[in-house]
Amino acid sequence: MKLGELEKLVLQYLWQNDSADVKQVFGHFEKTRGGSLNTIQSTLDRLYKKGLLTRHKAGHAFVYQAKVERHELIGQLIKSVTSDFITEDDSSLVAAFSSISKEFNEEQLLKLESLIEQQRLKLGQESK
């Protein structure tokens, strides 16, 4: 899945603001980036069609919310990029994470350890 620059910015905005209609999103980006209401509407619609947003009707407008958490999308993007290079029994992805972990601080490493442990417990429960 590929995301354009504005799509990324809109997702960031919705992660920070929970939900918004096109006028609210446009109001934010009009000040910081410019652009038109139609551009924002098209961007929201594209993100909805990509399955990254949900929407519901409120009056005459749609209100949009992020459908996936930020970390879930990052995981999907990593999987998308790496799937062309890694086979099922290949440990290159683990090696890549090990390589970038050099840039992590102590708190991030502790969080990573905690997430790995949670995943181990989940796998253990599923195999029972």
Results as ranks from 00 to 15, higher is better:
102 K>E: 13
113 E>R: 10
123 L>K: 13
32 T>D: 05
52 L>V: 02
59 G>W: 07
74 I>L: 14
72 E>T: 04
24 Q>K: 11
30 E>W: 01
77 L>W: 06
104 F>W: 09
111 K>H: 04
9 L>S: 12
78 I>D: 03
93 L>E: 02
11 L>Q: 03
35 G>Y: 03
51 G>L: 06
83 S>F: 05
34 G>A: 03
101 S>Q: 08
63 V>H: 02
107 E>M: 09
51 G>C: 11
69 E>G: 11
118 Q>K: 12
6 L>K: 07
125 Q>T: 12
6 L>N: 07
37 L>N: 03
54 T>E: 14
7 E>I: 01
79 K>R: 14
2 K>D: 10
49 K>C: 09
98 S>N: 12
15 W>A: 01
91 S>D: 14
125 Q>H: 13
8 K>I: 10
32 T>A: 10
72 E>V: 02
85 F>L: 14
119 Q>E: 15
65 Q>N: 08
57 K>M: 09
13 Y>W: 01
65 Q>V: 03
24 Q>D: 12
22 V>Y: 09
76 Q>M: 15
66 A>M: 11
94 V>T: 12
88 E>H: 14
112 L>A: 15
10 V>M: 04
66 A>G: 13
28 H>D: 12
62 F>S: 08
110 L>E: 15
22 V>R: 08
92 S>N: 06
50 K>F: 04
112 L>E: 06
34 G>Y: 07
10 V>R: 01
78 I>P: 00
125 Q>R: 15
14 L>K: 02
119 Q>K: 07
44 L>C: 07
3 L>Y: 03
65 Q>G: 07
62 F>P: 00
110 L>W: 14
21 D>H: 12
46 R>M: 11
67 K>E: 12
71 H>W: 03
85 F>A: 10
75 G>S: 14
92 S>A: 15
125 Q>V: 10
38 N>H: 14
87 T>E: 10
7 E>F: 01
11 L>A: 06
16 Q>N: 15
47 L>Q: 01
38 N>M: 11
6 L>S: 09
59 G>D: 07
128 K>A: 10
4 G>K: 12
62 F>C: 05
101 S>Y: 06
101 S>T: 08
53 L>Y: 03
92 S>M: 08
80 S>L: 10
45 D>K: 12
12 Q>E: 15
9 L>N: 08
66 A>Q: 04
104 F>P: 00
26 F>W: 10
35 G>E: 04
74 I>A: 11
18 D>S: 13
89 D>V: 01
13 Y>V: 05
112 L>H: 09
86 I>D: 00
